[in-house]
């Protein structure tokens, strides 16, 4: 997602100005027809009546959103009571994605800093090393993590052998496993934008701070962190947003107690729940949250530029 948010291309000329629309036409058609219209259709579906075992009946209904927030008894005839189940799943997703983002920041910032301080060709090699795992199939990375942290998996065996623990640590199917999976999925997204910010950092500022008797850590806290804040915010958004709707990490590394938005939505279409309008409504709520965050981010970015 990096670099996709801001539009900073300066078109200095218009060699193909006459053909602009012809050149754009295929992408407009394909994405418009197969993504934009489907998303709008999904919005419509979220206001329709559910048909049992998947699909919809074309009749306007607010049931999907109502079911999301309220419980009206087994037969739907009792006065509405606020329903925590689905809001709770969203809340847990936010919490899990937030924790993964913080892990990424704690590990990612020093890494980005370290790489930015390398010289010349070393830098690109280090960056390459950080990005390779991202391009490895996400499913395979998640399976690898599942294999590694199982109760009798290599990590536990190794720790037992070392004598660091007496019995295996139970990690699989816990919140921690899911956070670890999300962390592992999106860590490069944190490193790259922070690296870009640190690259631009002017070291004269650190020197000035040191001359004025700022301690080493005060310089980091008061001078460096504010200067590279845009990169940190970008990294946090790039990790948080895909974590929020992630499906593989919670599904493979978590259990029933770590159910997240992605699994909730999947269940409406692939699983037994089979409630399409409700799945569409949950998707719309997720999409609105993500678009709100991206819009906020784009605003911040344009403020930085101007």
């Amino acid at each position: 997602m990096a670099g996709a948010i801001t539009n900073n291309s300066k078109s200095n000329s218009g060699i193909y100005a006459g053909s602009a629309h012809v050149l754009m036409l295929p992408s407009w058609l394909i994405i418009g027809f197969f993504l934009l219209i489907p998303v709008l259709l999904m919005l419509v579906y979220s206001f329709l009546t559910k048909e049992f075992r998947g699909g919809v009946i074309w009749e306007f209904s607010l049931d999907a959103y109502d079911q999301f927030f309220f419980y009206r008894g087994l037969f739907g005839d009792e006065p509405p009571v606020f329903e925590w189940t689905y809001v709770g799943i969203f809340w847990r997703s936010i919490w899990q994605a937030g924790a993964a983002t913080i892990f990424c920041l704690i590990i990612g910032f020093p890494t980005a800093w370290f790489i930015a301080m390398r010289r010349g060709a070393n830098k690109s090699v280090w960056l390459f090393l950080i990005t390779i795992p991202y391009w490895v199939n996400l499913l395979i990375r998640t399976i690898s993590m599942k294999f590694l942290i199982r109760d009798n998996g290599p990590l536990n065996e190794w720790l037992l052998w070392m004598g660091a623990i007496n019995e295996p640590i139970h990690m699989i199917n816990t919140n921690f496993a899911v956070q670890l999976g999300l962390f592992y999925s999106y860590l490069p997204f944190m490193v790259l934008p922070i690296y870009a910010s640190v690259e631009r950092y002017n070291f004269a500022l650190s020197e000035a701070a040191a001359d004025l008797y700022a301690s080493h850590w005060e310089t980091l806290r008061l001078i460096i962190l504010p200067a590279v804040k845009p990169g940190i915010i970008a990294g946090c958004i790039l990790v948080f947003v895909p974590s929020l709707g992630a499906f593989l990490a919670p599904d493979l590394l978590g259990g029933a107690k770590t159910f997240m938005i992605g699994s909730l939505i999947e269940e409406q279409f692939k699983g037994n729940a089979g409630n399409w309008p409700f799945g569409a409504a949950a998707s719309m709520i997720l999409l609105s949250m993500v678009l709100a965050m991206l819009t906020y981010y784009a605003r911040q970015q344009s403020k930085e530029v101007s």
Binding site: P38, V39, L41, P242, G245, I265, E266, F269, A280, L287
Partner: peptide, 10 residues
């Protein structure tokens, strides 16, 4: 920009 799961549903 659209989360993968949302694209999938749509």
């Amino acid at each position: 920009m659209v989360p993968e799961i949302v694209t999938a549903v749509a």
